Structures are given as C-alpha cells and as structure tokens.
Simulated scan of single mutants.
Amino acid sequence: MILYGLKTCDTCRKARRALPDAQFVDVRDDGVPAAVLADALAQFGQALVNTRSTTWRSLDEAERTLSPAQLLADHPTLMKRPLVVDGDRMVLGWDKAAQSALGVA
C-alpha cells in the first residue's frame, strides 16, 4: 500500500497513523509517478484537483483553465490528499467512506 500526500498535511498525518504499514510518498519532494497519476485521473477526473488549496488560489485564470493532468504535472501539491494506492484499488481523501473502503475503523 502506498500513500501519496504531503508530510505537512494534517489529513495525511491522520491517514499515516491509521495505516502505519503503508509506504508514504511526499508529492512535493518526489511527485507522483506518471502511470499512477494517469490511473488516478482516469478514476477520479477533476475531483483529483484540490480547488480549495492555497496553491489553487495562487494560480492565475489562465493556469486554472489547464487540464487536470497538466495542472498536477506542474503543481503536484494541487492533488487532493491523500491518494492511497493498494494494488489495483485507489482511494482518494480521508473521509469516512475512504476509511471504510480501506478497512480502517
């Protein structure tokens, strides 16, 4: 299981505590592999872009019109977090539904 997120994100910290055996990848430092990003975009589409983030608010209107793939390639911290990859399954976010899908109480 791999957890993609930011080490400074409170939600990612909660996910890391709940999933202590998951490998953690900081997207700011290491990015998201192109294949994983493509699969996540295919599954989640525009929902993968966090439009409530500080990074999003700092973008100009021209940048905001870019495709989600280009936005996330240019600004990996725009990705909604965490993205948990467990084999062929992907779970986005850390709400009750995501926790339930991962078997976390």
Score class of each variant (00 low, 15 high):
M1P: 14
M1K: 10
I2E: 12
I2S: 08
I2A: 01
I2W: 06
L3Y: 01
Y4N: 04
G5D: 03
G5E: 01
G5L: 01
L6P: 04
T8P: 00
D10R: 09
D10Q: 10
T11A: 07
R13A: 15
R13Q: 15
R16K: 12
R16A: 13
R17G: 11
A18C: 00
A18G: 01
A18W: 04
L19C: 02
L19S: 03
D21V: 09
D21R: 15
A22V: 06
Q23I: 11
F24Q: 02
F24T: 13
F24L: 07
V25F: 05
V25R: 13
V25C: 11
V25G: 01
D26P: 11
D26L: 12
R28Q: 11
D30F: 14
D30W: 12
G31H: 03
G31F: 08
V32A: 11
P33F: 09
A34L: 05
A35H: 08
A35I: 02
V36N: 10
V36L: 08
L37P: 09
L37D: 09
L37I: 07
D39E: 15
D39V: 01
D39I: 01
D39A: 15
D39S: 15
A40R: 00
L41H: 11
L41M: 12
L41Y: 10
L41P: 10
A42V: 01
A42N: 13
A42D: 13
A42I: 02
Q43D: 10
Q43W: 01
F44C: 11
F44M: 12
G45P: 07
G45R: 13
Q46M: 14
Q46V: 15
A47T: 14
L48S: 07
L48W: 04
L48F: 02
V49N: 08
V49K: 07
N50R: 08
T51D: 10
T51V: 14
R52C: 02
S53C: 05
T55P: 01
T55V: 14
W56N: 09
R57D: 02
R57F: 04
R57T: 04
S58Q: 13
L59V: 07
D60Y: 03
E61H: 06
A62W: 00
A62C: 04
A62N: 10
E63M: 12
T65C: 12
T65F: 03
A69P: 03
A69S: 11
A69G: 02
A69K: 08
A69I: 00
Q70Y: 03
L71C: 05
L72S: 06
L72V: 09
A73C: 11
A73F: 07
D74M: 11
H75S: 06
P76M: 05
T77W: 01
T77A: 15
T77Y: 00
M79D: 10
K80I: 05
K80Y: 09
P82T: 07
L83Y: 07
L83K: 11
L83E: 10
L83H: 10
V84H: 04
V85H: 09
V85T: 05
V85N: 05
D86I: 01
G87P: 12
G87N: 13
D88Y: 02
D88H: 10
D88E: 14
V91E: 11
L92W: 05
L92H: 03
G93A: 07
G93N: 10
G93F: 06
W94G: 02
W94H: 12
D95C: 04
D95L: 04
K96E: 15
K96F: 00
A97D: 13
A98S: 14
A98V: 06
A98N: 05
A98Q: 06
A98H: 08
S100E: 09
G103P: 06
A105K: 13
